[in-house]
């Protein structure tokens, strides 16, 4: 057990070191492009968005939940990239020829991605706060938001790692990534509530786990516990199923790639 922990912490430290060496990347990771969605998109649509439709005092406060979950989405889907490069340059083989548990590499990646994502979610909520968005459910609500984000993130990171282990080249990886990310955002309640969407889009959005996550995060920010609790109670089993499917697929891809 102590050996297992030694492996995981050393591998996690490697990801942290890498990030800290890439000064620009760190800047762009922590002061995320997602913030631009909140600051620019949020302010841009302030008057274009109908508060009757969004059911929120202003568009930024409506959008905050969407941006939080979009951050989880993008980080999760990109979570496998470093393993992809490790696979391509042989570093992964070097790690795998060491007497470590096969799962250590994967777990270190989960720990790292989840930590960074949580930090970013906090930054986004902080910036939203500066624009006057105060989470209605307080600090406990923020903790629940982080929990939902992590549950969604685990499944996404598993998908990303499964792709990293399965694709032939990193070109394939990035094209699939680009193909997945935008439809996931548009076919969710991130930018517009389901009720205001064209029928076919809101129908599709209902099958998007992202919608479930956003619909739980949004009342935590906007309205309060009585509104939020039913959604939170729904999203947790949904995410458990989502994670189970993704982790199963990820484990299969990993075993296939690692012989």
């Amino acid at each position: 057990m102590t050996e297992y922990w030694q492996e995981i912490s050393a591998l996690t430290m490697r990801w942290v070191r890498r990030l800290s060496r890439e000064k620009f990347s760190m800047l762009f990771t922590l002061v995320q492009p997602m913030l631009f969605w909140l600051i620019f998109f949020g302010n841009l649509f302030q008057r274009a968005a109908d508060t009757q439709v969004t059911q929120a005092p202003n568009y930024i406060s409506f959008l905050a939940a969407g941006v939080v979950v979009m951050t989880v989405l993008n980080n999760g889907l990109a979570g496998g990239v470093d393993l992809l490069f490790d696979k391509e340059n042989g570093f992964l083989e070097r790690l795998m020829s060491a007497p470590i548990r096969r799962s250590s590499v994967i777990l270190s990646r989960f720990i790292f991605v989840m930590t960074i994502t949580s930090l970013q979610v906090l930054v986004i909520l902080g910036v939203a706060f500066l624009f006057g968005v105060e989470p209605a459910t307080g600090l406990l609500g923020v903790a629940v938001i982080l929990l939902i984000g992590m549950m969604f993130g685990v499944g996404l990171t598993a998908i990303s790692m499964a792709m990293a282990f399965s694709v032939k080249s990193h070109g394939d990886f990035f094209s699939v990534l680009g193909f997945l990310s935008l439809p996931m955002i548009f076919l969710s309640s991130a930018l517009v509530p389901l009720a205001a969407m064209p029928g076919w889009m809101s129908f599709l959005a209902r099958f998007n786990p992202m919608t479930w996550a956003i619909d739980a995060v949004r009342p935590l920010i906007l309205s309060g516990w009585s509104d939020a609790l039913p959604h939170v109670a729904m999203v947790i089993p949904v995410m458990v199923v989502f994670d189970a499917i993704c982790l199963y697929g990820g484990a299969k891809a990993f075993r296939r790639a690692m012989g």
């Binding site: 912490s9 890498r18 890439e22 340059n89």
Partner: peptide, 18 residues
Amino acid sequence: AIDRFLTGREHLQLLSAL
């Protein structure tokens, strides 16, 4: 099979832990 962001010593430290 080198992590370009790690120093030589850090490579060896990582493997020592593994």
